[in-house]
């Protein structure tokens, strides 16, 4: 359930309408529409989903049902620096879990959360195809390979030099 109520600006509603139009307002293009909308907004707040439902003439419940089915779609804004820990099998076998726990401890947050200051969000992802570098951590577009729990503090500090 969306906890924060947001008000969409005119340019934002226009943008969503344009996205829907570009897919011919076709019900079958819902997932493509959601991808594009998430690309634009960074996440898919309830208000955006409602608008899409109205445009594609489907129920908001259906849109929400689709959004919550796929892990790629998010209803909470990501942090400025989204941290993703690969928990694919290769990374797991090489200690991804201890790395993940270290991030949780250092950032004092759980997987799937965004810190209240909006700086970091923490998520797990499955296999980025860099098993040779396992365990792998991504912060934004930057990839860190062979990460050990001891490296975690350093990685975080890169993005927050003044300390936590």
């Amino acid at each position: 359930m969306s906890s924060v109520k947001i008000e969409l600006r005119k340019d934002q509603t226009d943008k969503i309408h344009t996205i829907c139009d570009s897919f011919g307002n076709q019900e079958g293009e819902l997932i493509n529409v959601l991808h594009k909308s998430q690309e634009t907004f960074g996440y898919l707040p309830a208000e955006v989903q409602e608008l899409i439902a109205e445009k594609l003439e489907i129920s908001a419940a259906k849109v929400y049902g689709v959004v919550t089915f796929y892990s790629f779609f998010s209803m909470t804004p990501k942090g400025e620096f989204p941290i993703s820990i690969c928990t694919g099998t290769a990374c797991y076998v090489r200690g991804a879990e201890t790395v993940l726990n270290e991030f949780k401890k250092q950032l004092e947050m759980e997987v799937g959360e965004t810190r209240t200051d909006g700086k970091f969000s923490l998520s797990c992802l499955r296999c980025v195809g860099a098993c040779g570098l396992a365990p792998v951590v991504q912060v934004g577009d930057k990839t860190y390979g062979r990460v050990a729990p001891d490296d975690v503090k350093g990685i975080i500090e890169e993005y927050l030099p003044a300390g936590l």
Partner: peptide, 24 residues
């Protein structure tokens, strides 16, 4: 067509539903 993160979509019928804009 883009997947959106659902392992079950490797199953043909799920994949097709997903392509149709439905839950996979």
């Amino acid at each position: 067509k883009y997947g959106a993160g659902a392992f079950v979509c490797g199953e043909e019928t799920s994949l097709i539903h997903s392509m149709e804009g439905l839950r996979g």
